[in-house]
Amino acid sequence: MGEAVVTIRRQADGVLVIEVRGSLDAATVDALRTAILGTLQRERPVTLIVDLTFVVFMDSLGIGTLVSGHRAAREVGTRFLLRNPSEFVHRQLRVTGLTEMFGLPPSPSSAVTFSLSNGDL
């Protein structure tokens, strides 16, 4: 079991960002769940981003927490986005068939390919 640090910040455009660092597993998912649900209840933001740039490990409980957050956000009318999942986290979401639900490309490299091909239009 690892550690996770969860922080919440507001961007200049008003979007709330929950940044997660470390592992998302049985020992740490409660902090993320509390941050997501508390932020949705208190703030009711238009958009809530969960930044996964520095998540080094995520198990099924971490995935379940993100799915629960997505559902809770939908219930209050908040747009729920995942940002910068590490290759490991992206693979976990792809294997479970959740990349599309979270609006992620099928693979980390396809986002770059998509951007380059659109730039050529």
Rank of each mutant, 00 (worst) to 15 (best):
G2M: 13
A4E: 14
I8Y: 01
R9V: 09
Q11K: 13
Q11S: 11
A12Q: 14
A12S: 15
D13K: 11
L16A: 07
E19I: 03
E19Q: 13
E19M: 12
V20Y: 15
R21I: 15
R21K: 15
R21Y: 11
G22W: 03
L24W: 14
A26V: 14
L32N: 08
R33T: 04
R33D: 10
R33K: 14
G38S: 11
T39E: 03
Q41N: 08
E43Q: 08
P45D: 09
I49Q: 14
V50T: 05
V50L: 03
L52G: 05
T53D: 06
V55E: 07
V55W: 08
F57C: 03
D59V: 10
D59N: 14
D59H: 06
S60L: 11
G62I: 04
G62R: 11
G62Y: 11
I63N: 11
L66N: 08
L66S: 08
L66H: 12
V67E: 03
S68G: 12
R71M: 06
R71Y: 05
A72D: 07
R74F: 07
R74S: 13
V76T: 14
V76R: 06
G77C: 05
G77I: 12
G77D: 10
T78A: 14
T78Q: 06
R79P: 08
F80R: 04
L81H: 01
R83H: 12
R83I: 04
P85K: 09
S86Q: 06
S86L: 13
S86C: 10
E87P: 01
E87M: 07
F88G: 01
V89K: 00
V89M: 01
H90K: 08
Q92P: 01
Q92I: 02
Q92L: 07
R94E: 10
L98N: 00
M101F: 01
M101E: 00
P108T: 09
P108F: 04
S109Y: 00
V112K: 04
T113D: 12
T113R: 08
L116F: 07
N118D: 04
G119N: 03
D120V: 01
L121C: 03
L121Q: 07
